[in-house]
Every structure is written in structure tokens, then in C-alpha cells.
Nucleic acid binder design. Structure first.
Lengths: 348, 348
DNA sequence: CTGAAAGCGCTTACAG
DNA sequence: CTGAAAGCGCTTACAG
């Protein structure tokens, strides 16, 4: 036990009879190696089972082959503790690990606090420790300039999920307005004309864009737009309940509701059940967030599926090409998907 | 941009006016530093914002401050793709990251294939790249001797989740027999006497232990034990359906069922609904696996909650103390929890 | 196209 | 109790 020594560049060099640099050049696919030598080195690496030591590579100023994916600590812990099965982290890992592995990188997932001062200190610490080649920021950190400033100072590439500015960063988002628009269109196509909308926090630009998309569709179809039917629910179950209840007790109540997130969609299901209003017979419902709860609810909900895995994969590939000297920054908008389940039906 | 240079041990040494070693000694809480010097060094590290570079520490043969948590690739991908919200990975990260952070470590999550040959090559690769101080193996890799042999050869500490041998490894498990026993006891306490059991794969020792616990309880209470009422469902929804159907169509059908995993528990709910058998009025159900689907089902199921986060946290702390020279190996059995929800009721 | 030298930021023996 | 030296496994200038 403990006897196996890992193979180093020195072993390969000795085996082939060349210098360590030559091996390094082959490893990094650099120029200036005779094809015959390159082949012999490659054969030797394969035969000896050589794998480069990431720590050593990182030392002499080069790449670390590490991408850091940062999530908000409070939100993540809350989801984990609640056990409601929000699969955002899973989808992040899915997309990120797949892409990193494809390119010989490793994804390291870390949590930092929301408060700007603490966040900066924590990010600074993990960067100094790990020296990643790139960092992925997710909401709400995507909007924290203290963090992006810090990354710029350190000269580390940065990708922001949910941002659409582009510029020096790799910004990856989905078509938020399109999501609101498509949800409303799906309902309008089912002959609904009285469509209410449970909006998210007005502090989130992305939520605002979704409302705009909804409004655009109503406009395009000439459907009535009532200010009263845009509920400001502040992102949770409890605060959405009274809003929904007020709507559903009206004489001319909405026949369809779009909910900005899964918790608010559950609130709709809850109130409808209490009032004896059947979903989807009497009321159609679309969730703009697709979580396991949304898929497993009774009935399973029609929902907009955010391309989380694809967004993180895109962030990784952008970061990797940036750290290998290719084009820096960019703006990528990925397509969402409307998944029809059983919470929406044609108006009778 | 790119101008900020991280603070190194050399900066601190120059600042205080001592050698780099002295700083290193303070950093590693080593002996042989005069208290006054130690205090000045610590003050300087704090003031300069010094954070040790993990790659550099790893180089000169010391620790890497990295713990590698390995999951099975196929299973993990399948869960992620299915989107049923199995939160095993989340709970792993929750427990592992919390403990690692507390001790100044980082948790790196990686996937390797099931097939022994591929698994070995992949583990060998990631170990050579990252040089972690310890590796956590989860089922089914916990049972793969090729992997543990490899780790022993490399001299890397290893923890196995779901194993109970102890010995040189840090083995962390839960009381499987106790889980089967408690599930049955809960039902017996509700006056049930005809309790059937949907067992998991006979290839998993842990599943077998749970059946034993169930059998022990029946024995202790003098309840009838029928070989027919132990279903061999092989771990999934489809294969459990006919077994459950046969049971529930019997004259003297079971009044309670224990399911080894969530998929089989869903199968029970499904068949009961089709046959017009109410849960929990006419049939009680306990799931031995607690996933978001189990919590969100209609009705929410009474279930055994596996201490996943705590097991991974224990594995991390065991690995960390082993790599810092303390006691090696050990066997830890963590308590599970029976969570009463709405799928079990007193027999009328 | 190839190699000898220096160095990344630490820690490990070894002197004093 | 403290420090000068060597080295971990690589890559980056710099010579040839």
C-alpha cells in the first residue's frame, strides 16, 4: 500500500530519450516537434499511463484546468434543506461536468454568501486557493459588480448566467420575454381570453421581461389586459395565496393563470382545490419554472423548461476557449422549451 | 484588469522580516515558533489577506486539501435526465461541502462508470490529476475492490458509503435492518397484521438486511410471515406493478405494504388507485426511500429518511483526520429517521 | 526542431 | 526556536 508512484513527465522523457520540454510540447499540442518524435512520445505516455498533474501545471503560470461554478449559499441550502427537489444544482452539474470532461477540465462547485462584502471575501479566498481558469456566476451573484470587478483584477475569465449584456464577459441567458409570450400563446391557442399572471419580484429584470412577453401576446391577439391581473407575489407560496384567492372569487374570474415560479404555481393549485375549481377543466395553469414538484404534482403541470444544463455547458465552453486564448466574452441566448402536461386544456 | 497579484508566503515573510519557513510553520500550526513571532506572522497574513495556494501546497508532497466524492455515472445521469428529483447528489454535496469547508478543505464531485475496468482507469486518471487527500466511494463503487486496491496502492485514504466492514477504510452506513424493523413496527403499532414487503434486488446486501429487520419484527410480534408477501421487484416501477396487483386482488389482501424504494412505492399507489383501494384508509404504505417524489406524492408518504448528508459529512471528517495523521479507518453507523406523513393510518 | 536553465509557491529534511 | 537549500512536476522564456 502507498507504493505506487504516479508517472511524471520525467519518466516519459527518460523512456523516449528526449528532454522534458519535448514531452511538455507534445502534451500541450505545441508546434516544433518532429512528427516521428511526437508519435513516440504519445505512444510512451499511453503505455506508461501518464496523466498530467494539475497542480504542477497550474504552478508555472499556466492553466489550472479548473472551472469554478458559484451558487448562492442561502438559496442553495434552503433548497437542500427543504427537500422539495429543486434540481437547479443537479442540472448545473450535469451541463458543467459533461462539457468540462469533454475538454479535459474539472468543474468545482462552490457556495458563497449573498451579502456583497462577505461574497467578495469568500470568492477571493477560493480563487486564491484554487486558481481556476474561469468562474461561473449564477443569480443573484451574476448581478454583483463587486464580484466581477474582483475577477477582472485577478485576470480570471468570468461567465454570468441570466445576464445578457455580453461585452467582456461570457453572458448566457434564455429568452425570458419569449417564455412569457409562449406561455400566454399556448393558453390563447386553447381559446383562453382571461389570462392572469402571477409575476415575480420586480427587482429581477428577468421576471420583468417575462411579464413583457405576456403583455405582448395579449396585445398581439387583442386580448384584454387588466393591471389587476398581474399579481406581485414576491416569489413565494404564502404571498401568492391571497392574490390567487381574490382572482378566483371574482364574478368574471380568469380561466387561465401563468405563474412565474413553481411555488406560486403550487399556490394556484392549492387555492383552486379549496374553492372546488378543477384544474384543468375549470382553470388552466402554466408554471414558468419546471422543477420535479411541478412534474409530479396532481395534475402534472404544463411548464416552461429553462435550459439550465445547456447554459452552464455553454458558459464552460466559453470560459475554456477564452482561457486558451480564443475570443473573449460574448452573449448567448439559449432556447427554452414549453412542456405540455395536464394542467392546461381547451376552454369549454 | 489582470493586475492583482495574489499574496504569497514570500510577501508575508518580507513583511514580517522572517524566513518563508517560519511563515509556513505558522500556517501549518507547527511547533517551534516563538509566540511573539507567531502573532506577528498571523497579523501580517490577516492584514495582507494571505491565502495559501492549494496547488503549491500539494506539490511538495504534502496535502492537497481536496476530497473527491465519486458517484456512479450511469445512475447519476439517469436521475438527472429523468428529472424525478432524486436528491441524493444534493444531500451528498450538502453534507460534504459543509464539513469540508469547516475544515478548510474543498469537495470535488466526480462521476465514474460502473464497469470495473473503465472505472479503474477513470479513477486513476482523476487521482493523478487532482491528487486528493481522500476519496469517497458510494454504491455501487463501494463494493468494487479494484477501486479500493487502486487507492491503497496510491496511498490515498478511502471512505465507503453503505459498507460496514470497517478495517482500514472509513466505512459509513446506516442501520439497514433497523429501518426494515421500524417500518414494520410503525405499521404493527397501527394494528396492521397483514404486512407485505416489496424487496429490492437480492444482490444488494443492504436490501437483504432490511428484509431481515422486517422479518424480525413480525417474529417478535407473533405476526404471520408469508413467503408470498415478500415481492422480488428488482428495484423498479414496472416490475413491481404485477406483484402488487396480485397481492391486492387476493381475498385476504395485505392491509399494509413496505416498499424498498420510491419507485416501487409509486407502483403501490398506482395499483391501489386503479383498484379503487384508498391510501391510507384501506391500505397503508411505507417507503424505505425518502425522495422529493415521495414527499410530494398524493398522499405524501410515510418514509424512512436515510442520513445521506450526515454520512458524507462523517466520511469527510474521517478522511481528513486520517490524512492529517490521526486514526485510520473505522466503522460508523448513523441513525435513520422514520417520517410519518399521510400514507399510513390505524387499521379500522 | 530540440534542450539546459530558471521558476511557480509551497514544504521537507537538514543545519545551526 | 529559526533559516538556507533543495525539490515537488510542470511550463516559460531563452539558446542553439
Amino acid at each position: 500500500m502507498g507504493t505506487k508512484q504516479p508517472v511524471t513527465i520525467r519518466d516519459v522523457a527518460a523512456d523516449v530519450g528526449v528532454s522534458r520540454q519535448t514531452v511538455s510540447r507534445v502534451l500541450n499540442k505545441g508546434p516544433n516537434v518532429k512528427p516521428a518524435v511526437r508519435a513516440r512520445v504519445e505512444e510512451s505516455m499511453e503505455r506508461l499511463g501518464y496523466v498530467p498533474n494539475i497542480s504542477a501545471r497550474r504552478m508555472r503560470g499556466s492553466r489550472s484546468y479548473l472551472i469554478l461554478a458559484i451558487n448562492d449559499r442561502q438559496r442553495t441550502y434552503e433548497n437542500w434543506r427543504a427537500g422539495r427537489g429543486n434540481d437547479w444544482v443537479d442540472q448545473m452539474l450535469f451541463g458543467g461536468m459533461t462539457e468540462c470532461e469533454r475538454q479535459g477540465y474539472h468543474l468545482v462547485f462552490e457556495l458563497i454568501d449573498t451579502q456583497p462584502e462577505k461574497a467578495q471575501g469568500q470568492l477571493s479566498k477560493v480563487i486564491s486557493e484554487l486558481r481556476p481558469d474561469g468562474v461561473i456566476l449564477t443569480p443573484p451573484h451574476s448581478d454583483n459588480a463587486t464580484l466581477t470587478d474582483l475577477l477582472e483584477e485577478f485576470g480570471i475569465a468570468c461567465a454570468r448566467i441570466g445576464r445578457r449584456d455580453g461585452g467582456a464577459f461570457v453572458d448566457v441567458c434564455m429568452d425570458e420575454a419569449g417564455a412569457g409570450f409562449e406561455a400566454a400563446r399556448h393558453l390563447a391557442d386553447l381559446d383562453h381570453t382571461r389570462i392572469a399572471y402571477l409575476a415575480g419580484s420586480p427587482y429581477y429584470g428577468n421576471s420583468l421581461m417575462r411579464v413583457d412577453g405576456y403583455r405582448d401576446l395579449l396585445c398581439e391577439r387583442g386580448l384584454p389586459y387588466k393591471e389587476d391581473w398581474i399579481g406581485k407575489g414576491e416569489f413565494n407560496f404564502d404571498t401568492a395565496i391571497p392574490v390567487v384567492q381574490a382572482w378566483l372569487e371574482q364574478e368574471e374570474r380568469p380561466t387561465a393563470i401563468i405563474a412565474d415560479n413553481d411555488q406560486m404555481a403550487f399556490a394556484v393549485l392549492h387555492v383552486a382545490d379549496r374553492l372546488g375549481i378543477g384544474v384543468p377543466q375549470d382553470l388552466s395553469l402554466v408554471s414558468l419554472e419546471d422543477t420535479p414538484g411541478v412534474r409530479l404534482s396532481v395534475p402534472p403541470m404544463t411548464a416552461i423548461r429553462q435550459p439550465t444544463a445547456a447554459m452552464i455547458a455553454k458558459a464552460c465552453s466559453g470560459l475554456i476557449s477564452e482561457s486558451s486564448g480564443s475570443a473573449a466574452g460574448g452573449r448567448y441566448e439559449l432556447p427554452f422549451e414549453l412542456i405540455r402536461r395536464e394542467s392546461t386544456a381547451r376552454l369549454k
